[in-house]
């Protein structure tokens, strides 16, 4: 038998490993790099979002209500340049969405140019901002289609990462990855992070290196959340768009 001192010794050793991993010196941490659930490049993106700074809230103008959206991926190769501001992204989203749905933007963020990650696997902490790198807009809010309201988030940014990296980060169970005729790489899937919670993901890496990332969910958090956590409240039994509808939006040639 052991006593509680041994348990505290174990805690102290685990703390030591945590500290060592944080500064990137733990051999044990490197042992499992190959099976990390979240690719470091994606973590860099998430960290970039964390250090983005100001978030301000501004209602968007709803679009017009809706007929049925397209349900198959576009094969067009024409894409505009990446949007440079949340307002730019909102304007483009309104065009792409057409009469598919209405939406209201509740958060507009500008993520500093902390990506793409040129050296994946070399850092696990917050990344310094590159003042010369372009900033990327990220918007989120509510979206209503067919009488169902849910949440959405949308971001377009340049990256070295593959689109299916977001499947892992978003806990997508059945990630489907394909290559479109124009060479774009498309990843789609659905996550069910908690009982009753449904989050659809579509992530398109375009030939120009920009990634269009969109989530729609039936909770306050479009990526889904634990039921008793922030973002865990339900809007509806299902997301406002089907996965096919979401895919059609992300692959639209109207961006």
């Amino acid at each position: 038998m052991s006593d509680l001192r041994t348990l505290h010794d174990a805690f102290a050793e685990l703390e030591r490993r945590a500290d060592a991993a944080t500064v990137g010196t733990a051999p044990a941490a490197r042992t499992h790099r190959a099976v990390r659930l979240i690719p470091v490049a994606v973590t860099v993106v998430a960290v970039a979002v964390m250090i983005a700074g100001a978030v301000w809230v501004l209602p968007g103008r709803p679009g017009t209500p809706a007929a049925g959206p397209p349900t198959t991926p576009s094969t067009s190769t024409t894409h505009g340049s990446a949007p440079t501001s949340p307002d730019d992204l909102i304007a483009r989203f309104r065009v792409v969405l057409g009469d598919t749905a209405t939406f209201e933007v509740t958060s507009k963020n500008t993520v500093p140019g902390a990506f793409p990650s040129k050296q994946p696997g070399t850092s696990t902490g917050p990344q310094p901002e590159d003042p010369d790198a372009p900033s990327s807009p990220l918007i989120g809010g509510t979206l209503t289609a067919g009488g169902v309201t849910g949440s959405f988030s949308l971001m377009i940014y340049p990256t070295d990462s593959e689109p299916d990296a977001w499947c892992t980060l978003s806990r997508t169970e059945d990630c489907d990855v394909s290559t479109l005729p124009d060479g774009s790489r498309l990843a789609t899937g659905t996550a069910r992070p908690a009982p009753g919670a449904v989050s659809h993901l579509a992530s398109l890496k375009r030939p120009d290196g920009t990634l269009v990332l969109m989530h729609v969910g039936n909770q306050e958090d479009p990526r889904g959340a634990a039921l008793d956590s922030p973002g865990g409240e339900f809007h509806a039994p299902r997301p406002p768009l089907t996965l096919d509808q979401l895919t059609a939006l992300v692959t639209s040639d109207k961006w």
Binding site: L14, R17, A18, A20, A21, A26, A28, A29, H32, R33, V35, R36, L37, I38, T43, A46, V47, V49, M50, A52, S107, T124, G140, L169, D221, R223, A225, S229, P230, G231
Partner: peptide, 20 residues
């Protein structure tokens, strides 16, 4: 009990915390 899993866990949680 796993540093690599802890990194993922903390990164994920901080990302969600940022959003809220």
């Amino acid at each position: 009990c796993r540093t690599w899993l802890a990194e993922d866990l903390v990164s994920d949680v901080l990302g969600r915390a940022f959003e809220h």
